[in-house]
Design a protein around this nucleic acid. Structure first.
Lengths: 232, 232
DNA sequence: GCTTGTGAAGACCTTCACAGCA
DNA sequence: TGCTGTGAAGGTCTTCACAAGC
């Protein structure tokens, strides 16, 4: 087997986590009509350094031309391919309380190729009801339905107290990717990808700095900002 | 002035970003009746190493007892103090589309001391209407209302195309903390804290690994998991 | 000229390993 | 004995700086 790309084991997780941000910025730049971009330009938009941009891309190949920069279209298609976004991914939502229902109607998923194809809850009050285009199914049919519908990723939108149980059930069903909206850190076995989405920790780390700024004189933070960034 | 704590400049951002997770875990453990905890126990819950837990705490003081561990209550109150959570913080939401309305009714904020006290939109269709307990105000009154209501943090829930403009307006009004729900990376001047909440980049970095797992044999990832973690 | 791609250097963070103390 | 707190070591990521090439 010919290996044209570096093995994923050699690529730092942090590099992978930046690729979606490049994708986001490049998509927007392409819509604005930009066809070619230089590392320092992309760096300004995503608030990184030109060296970091070039180094990150270099893990996957040589996408640029010396003296010229990168083709935006080429970069977009390379990054999509690297991330596995050259296909759609099917999601199932577990838990249709406030958060779950909001997620079903959230358009951000669909536009990026993430299709919500199933919804589950344990409450008889919700089972059988429609939420958006979906009929809420009983958790008892989880395994069967996940297989039938070809679900790749489970979205956990249940209360904290039930999050671990639901995560275990999804793992049991063979799900390898979980997006968790419960404000907790569930345990998952090796090989299962878990991402927790919770605005509260973000706010709580923010207040650390806001507090400092209001009690002490605001001083330049160490490494507070990459060089060369521009704020209009 | 006596300085009992290390200057915030000397504390790595990454350490600050972990404190909310410790808080989350400790709160849950306290509810379960745990009064004392050892670094390796907390490490198991948050999926870190005992050394990291101890090192992180050591930036702020000596909270433990040799041979004993840490008092959960003491830790909770120290971390809350460090993060500035010994008070409530006032939020204002800008943009009352689907996301904004979902956020107004989200209870996770209130329970953690983040009070949504104002809501703004630019659309005449929404201005004056009630969303939850709040009457949606015109963006024209932004500066005045933010001052009057003592708003600390702005929550941006507008479409991508307007996000930078709204961020600029908030910054102009003297807001130092912004929680951004638009799928973009707005520019902010130094001294303004920005956190972007977007599930899509999380999903997109997840698919990188899911793709690998399905196309290649799943191999143990380098540094995939801290030592000593336990999965039940 | 200008910009990429990349080894090497440097900065930063994590982990080790043990002194110190309950 | 057991566990914390912490310098020191080790490892990873970022940045530098320049050769290569358009």
């Amino acid at each position: 087997m010919v290996r044209t790309q570096r093995a994923s084991q050699d690529i730092p997780d942090i590099v992978v986590s930046r690729l979606p941000l490049y994708l986001q910025a490049l998509t927007s730049l392409q819509e604005q009509g930009m066809a070619v971009i230089k590392s320092h330009e992309l760096a300004a938009v995503v608030q990184a350094t030109p060296a970091q941009i070039r180094k990150d891309f270099s893990y996957f190949g040589k996408f640029g031309k010396q003296g010229m920069g990168y083709s935006v279209e080429r970069l977009l298609s390379e990054i999509r391919l690297i991330l596995g976004l050259d296909r759609t991914w099917n999601l199932a939502i577990v838990g249709l309380g406030r958060v779950g229902r909001a997620l079903v109607s959230y358009r951000g998923f669909l536009h990026q190729g993430f299709h919500i194809v199933a919804a589950f809850d344990q409450s008889p009050k919700v089972i059988g009801k429609k939420v958006g285009r979906l009929v809420v199914q009983d958790m008892a049919y989880l395994q069967e339905a996940l297989k039938t519908q070809g679900v790749d990723i489970g979205v956990v939108a249940v209360p904290v107290a039930e999050a671990q149980k639901v995560v275990n059930q999804l793992v049991q069903c063979g799900i390898k990717g979980i997006l968790n909206y419960a404000p907790t850190t569930p345990q998952v076995p090796p090989g299962v990808q878990l991402r927790t989405v919770d605005p509260v920790p973000s706010l709580q780390s923010m207040t650390f700095y806001l507090k400092e700024a209001s009690t002490a004189k605001v001083r330049a933070k160490r490494r507070s900002r990459p060089k060369g960034r521009a704020f209009p």
